[in-house]
Design a protein around this nucleic acid. Structure first.
Lengths: 345, 345
DNA sequence: TTTAGCACTCAACGAGAATGAATGCTAAGG
DNA sequence: CCTTAGCATTCATTCTCGTTGAGTGCTAAA
């Protein structure tokens, strides 16, 4: 479909601004792109675009920059949807490797995304609350300590090392753990803390100084409950020119990335690919694009890219869409394969 | 011991410069500190200090700033060695908690250090190479996958989830693993990769599609081999005024923190508390102070603080020294307790 | 040996002036 | 009616240049 002249101009402005981070004027446009009309015409169109709320001026006689609305419009109507070949290649490499878990694949993909887009990338793991405890194993170590390893049904592992209470026999510890294992296996992670009360008597029966073990368990369960948020390529943001000279802004953003607020924003976004430009409350120059990702076993996670409002949306969105699409296809292939085998038996 | 006038002046200059990040002049010194001599005298002394290579000028008519040599001198002869009470308190809280492993304690302490000094803190874990494999456990999960957990004698846990090869019986998997367990238990981590060859036949006997399992193991062992470097409070560096306006410098430093170079620098430093000021090659304004830490079981790790050359050495060094000292005492107490019990039995 | 005094240096600050990229508007041309 | 050339206008940016003031080194007196 041919773009209208107005759309064409908007497209050029957005893309030029994304490249240079400088307000774009009518002259600049004429010089950099082959346009069949004059700068005056552009000025007229720019005025119209400004009135429509798609462009803004930084001051009376400056060039135009896209407004949030302008970005939105660009993203939904104007962008090129071109996927970087390098991303395709790199993802291919990842997917062809054997012996890796689903979460590993997702995380590696997220790293690729971050590297290629020069944006910070966030993986919000599937909510652990729904997962069930699969196994508890205690391994005695040297130095009178022991490690307890908890595994959920989706292969998430928590471990905790603690100093063993004195006067404990290896056998009675094993017996005790086997009892607890029976009691807790299959329990959803969300209910583990509550069930601790129930196993307290077991501990008391077998172990004199039971509070150490009790605490080790409780703390491990607390870790389970935490959201699984992984951040990659935070440092990529440094390469963005808007932050190079404004250390203060950069600092704000980095602290935001660490804060639970980010989690809210990422998880709140709805739809398959959501764009959250120019956040209403504080960070006017921060933008999050996020995509849902269906994982095997009815689980869902979310990959997001975080960067300055002036980010290369085309590049970033195309990459994100491509990666999630490919991952979902890959996961489908795996699960189907498994089902087929099941039938075959 | 009374300080000589010259030393006193140097001390004031270093401390004032650490506070303000501005060159210090003779006037400033007179105004801010109660000194029994005039600015002219200070100027004379400053000239002498400059000739001795302890002070520098940024330009002909500026105040003085400490040179690397000046910092070194300050650190070894002039600093106050005052430990912040809050660090004492917070460390106390950490040490009084039960059910935590040695590495956990070290890492928590490192976080405290980073928070209190506003510097980045690095923990270089004990070299994994010396540790021995304690246990290998495979847990089958839903979705035809399985998790294998490796534990070393000091409680370090690696885990790897992989998709199970088709047509495999749970029992035969268990048998196979029990065999491998026997074969690998007690093997030093450094030799694991080499021993993989030896267990290959076992895998082949029990599992048709053995390469997936083989790769899962190999990759996990690769992770073991990696240095255990933990970084805390990287963001603290943002609060340093010298980086606030120079995003470029900040970026360089942060990438350095991620790079293996850091590891070299930290592990190379010798002595109990080593100070590495104004690195010869590139980063003239980066400084690393690092301290060895004896852990239970003849193991050693290293805690380091990384920051701008103009850091509060007194504060940082005192904190670092205090923390490592307290930790070593604590560890000694633990091991002694264990020995006593051993004798008592 | 210390210090007051003085000439000197030089980064930092600020007020204009010059620059130039951009605008909006008007009027002529297709 | 749409397009464009032309022009006055705006305003951030850059530059110049004089002023300021913190700082120095040196000298001579106490």
């Amino acid at each position: 479909m041919e773009l209208s002249r107005r759309d064409l101009i908007l497209k050029h402005i957005v893309e030029h601004f994304i490249k240079t981070a400088l307000p774009v004027g009518s002259q600049t446009l004429i010089q950099n792109y082959e346009l069949s009309f004059s700068s005056a015409t552009i000025r007229n169109e720019m005025l119209a675009l400004e009135n429509a709320g798609l462009l803004e001026k930084t001051h009376t006689s400056s060039g135009r920059i896209p407004s949030s609305k302008g970005y939105q419009y660009y993203v939904s109507h104007l962008r090129n949807k071109s996927v970087d070949e390098r991303i395709k290649q790199q993802l291919q490499v990842i997917l062809s490797q054997k012996a890796q878990s689903v979460t590993e694949i997702i995380q590696k993909s997220s790293e690729i995304l971050s590297n290629m887009t020069k944006l910070a990338s966030v993986v919000l793991g599937p909510n652990a609350q729904q997962e069930k405890l699969m196994s508890i194993q205690v391994t005695p170590l040297e130095n009178n300590s022991a490690t307890v390893v908890f595994i959920t049904d989706s292969g998430y592992v928590e471990n905790k090392t603690f100093v063993l209470p004195k006067n404990i026999e290896k056998d009675s510890l094993a017996d005790c753990m086997s009892l607890i294992n029976k009691r807790l296996r299959g329990t959803p992670v969300s209910e583990l803390s509550a069930k601790m009360e129930a196993i307290k008597p077991i501990l008391e029966d077998y172990i004199a100084e039971h509070d150490v073990v009790y605490q080790a368990f409780t703390q491990a369960f607390l870790n389970f409950a935490g959201e699984r948020l992984k951040l990659y390529g935070k440092d990529s943001l440094f390469n963005q020119p808007e932050f190079a000279h404004d250390g203060d802004k950069l600092r704000k953003i980095l602290t935001l990335l660490e804060s639970p607020k980010l989690l809210n924003h990422v998880s709140k976004t709805s739809g398959n690919v959501a764009i959250n430009i120019g956040d209403q409350d504080q960070n006017h120059d921060l933008s999050i694009i996020s995509s849902k990702l269906k994982m095997p076993g009815e689980k869902e996670s979310r990959i997001a890219l975080v960067g300055p409002t002036r980010m290369d949306y085309d590049r970033a969105l195309s990459a994100l869409e491509y990666v999630t699409e490919m991952l979902e296809k890959y996961f489908e292939k795996i699960t189907n394969k498994t089902k087929m085998e099941g039938k075959g038996k």
